[in-house]
């Protein structure tokens, strides 16, 4: 069982790194790029015998308490069986 956790900056928070990446992408000649924002991705391997519900709760807690800073970031959890 694998939990995938996506941590992204809240929409209200400016992302200077994303802006720099966007600038580079535009220099490469890509057009029609409205915005690029940078985030973090985590894969958590969980015991295979956990129920999906418990696995999700565990990953959500890890995301909330450790992986994301709620002041500036949001998170999203996906469970892969």
């Amino acid at each position: 069982m694998k939990a995938k956790v996506y941590v992204t900056l809240k929409p209200s928070v400016l992302d200077p790194q994303g802006k720099a990446i966007q600038h580079s992408v535009e220099l490469l000649g890509f057009e029609q790029i409205a915005d690029i924002r940078q985030g973090k991705y985590f894969e958590i391997a969980l015991d295979a015998d956990l129920s999906e519900n418990i696995a999700r709760q565990t990953a959500e807690r890890i995301a909330k308490d450790v992986l994301a800073n709620p002041v500036i970031e949001d998170y999203r959890v996906e469970i892969d069986r």
Partner: peptide
Amino acid sequence: LCESGLLPGALMRNSGL
């Protein structure tokens, strides 16, 4: 101190990178 909640807010990457 910010990460541990003793002070409010957060410190992010400098705007000039």
